[in-house]
């Protein structure tokens, strides 16, 4: 569904490339997590899938980015957006600024696509319920907190039902309950066969949702594997990504001979609980 063929990119008037030699193929229906340090190129990578790089940003793109077989460099943005939905990092910037209520804000993209009114209402109500923001429907988008705006920004893209959804740190300002709602909505997309690219730091959500995780460092892909492979890789901290406390505890325990060398390191709670419980039984 998404193909990166040796993609390099530099923003206008900068010497350092933001992306280098990216080669990646994300099949339809796959959920691909993207992690990496600040400044590693995650946002640029996300914007390149949606064609915003280089259509809106300018700059020089080498290699090819293809979505559903179409080169994003030659596809007009207006056509590309029906394939790829992009949730940008700062929710303030996702607000159209032209709408006076959350409900109208969610309608903005649908109006632009000429979706009939009855269907619009139905889709908006569904998204409001799914993201738990029905109570905000009549509020002004600019009167919301950052976290609430973030949920509206996600809803504004989901409501358009693109075949590929790209989200740039969509839960950064959200509490655990709202984060769970967002991951629930993404799981529903996954079940519907939608291709998802998710830039996200929250490991627990990624492990449960993603089919694969890529790690970016200095604009290049440095790790690419299943969530378990990536989040137990000992090079991960060197790329600015924190493993879970479960993984760190087990690794440190292994160094002290307290975690068997033949047991895989845990990433999430169940494996950690089972592993450490087995440990104390073995000592018995």
């Amino acid at each position: 569904m998404i193909e990166f063929e040796n993609v390099g990119f530099a923003y206008p008037e900068t010497a350092e490339p933001a992306l280098r030699g990216i080669a990646l193929s994300v099949p339809q229906g796959q959920v691909c997590g993207v992690v990496g340090a600040g400044g590693a190129g995650k946002s640029t990578f996300a914007a390149a899938i949606a064609g915003m790089v280089p259509h809106v940003t300018g700059g020089t793109l080498t290699g090819a980015v293809r979505v559903a077989g179409r080169s994003m460099a030659t596809t007009p943005l207006a056509e590309a957006v029906t394939d790829v939905g992009l949730v940008v990092q700062d929710p303030f910037n996702q607000m159209s600024g032209a709408k006076f209520t959350v409900r109208e804000e969610l309608a903005f993209g649908l109006e632009n696509l000429g979706v009939p009114r009855a269907e619009m209402v139905e889709r908006i109500d569904a998204v409001l319920a799914e993201l738990g923001i029905a109570h905000l429907a009549d509020r002004s988008p600019f009167g919301l907190s950052g976290g609430q705006q973030q949920l509206v920004a996600i809803g504004a893209v989901l409501v358009m039902r693109p075949r590929v959804v790209v989200l740039d740190e969509p839960t950064s300002q959200l509490d655990p309950a709202s984060t769970a709602l967002v991951f629930g909505a993404l799981a529903a997309l996954r079940a519907g066969g939608i291709t998802v690219v998710l830039v996200e730091h929250k490991v627990a959500g990624l492990v449960e949702l993603a089919d694969r995780v890529v790690v970016l460092a200095d604009g290049a892909i440095v790790l690419d594997g299943t969530p378990h492979e990536v989040f137990t890789d000992e090079r991960l901290p060197g790329f600015g990504v924190s493993p879970t406390r479960y993984t760190r505890a087990a690794r440190q325990a292994a160094e002290h001979g307290l975690w068997p060398a033949d047991r895989p390191l845990p990433v999430l709670f169940p494996e950690a609980a089972a592993g450490f419980a087995a440990l104390s039984e073995r000592s018995a």
């Binding site: 914007a47 949606a50 915003m52 259509h55 809106v56 940003t57 007009p76 943005l77 207006a78 957006v81 029906t82 790829v84 939905g85 992009l86 940008v88 990092q89 700062d90 910037n93 996702q94 159209s96 600024g97 409900r103 109208e104 309608a107 903005f108 993209g109 649908l110 109006e111 632009n112 696509l113 000429g114 979706v115 009939p116 009114r117 619009m120 209402v121 908006i124 504004a156 893209v157 358009m160």
Partner: peptide
């Protein structure tokens, strides 16, 4: 710039005949 990206991503430039929610 970020807003321009976001507006394009929400089909603001799309050539479709527009509809209205209200």
């Amino acid at each position: 710039e970020a807003r321009a990206v976001a507006m394009e991503a929400r089909a603001f430039g799309a050539p479709h005949r527009r509809t209205a929610l209200l």
